[in-house]
């Protein structure tokens, strides 16, 4: 099962979850977990999503979400969950 972690960094505002989840829904990507927190005074949200049922590639999803981030004045990173697990789990 292929999973991605979307990290959204910036200033909290209305519609962040709505717009990002809407994009993922349009690609038939299931969101499994959402977390958000203010760290160092910066709003951070993460979405864990399963893209195995989607016909879109992670690269395409990344491009679209980064573009959405630019529109909303937010920094967006899309990682493979496997990379994060390799880095943060022994």
């Amino acid at each position: 099962m292929e999973k991605i972690v979307v990290v959204v960094v910036g200033t909290d505002r209305v519609g962040i979850i709505a717009r990002f989840s809407g994009h993922l829904f349009a690609h038939n990507i299931n969101i499994e977990d959402v977390q958000q927190k203010v760290m160092d005074g910066i709003f951070v949200m993460t979405l864990l999503a399963d893209i195995s049922q989607s016909s879109s590639s992670p690269a395409l999803v990344r491009r679209e979400l980064e573009e959405l981030g630019r529109e909303m004045g937010l920094k967006v990173m899309v990682h493979s969950e496997a990379v994060l697990k390799a880095m943060h789990r022994v």
């Binding site: 990290v7 960094v9 958000q36 949200m45 993460t46 990682h79 994060l84 880095m87 943060h88």
Partner: peptide, 17 residues
């Protein structure tokens, strides 16, 4: 165990900043 928001942010921050 799933990845926490701090860990995801740490990695994103390495690349972004």
């Amino acid at each position: 165990m799933s990845i926490g928001v701090e860990e995801a942010y740490e990695t994103a921050g390495m690349i972004l900043f």
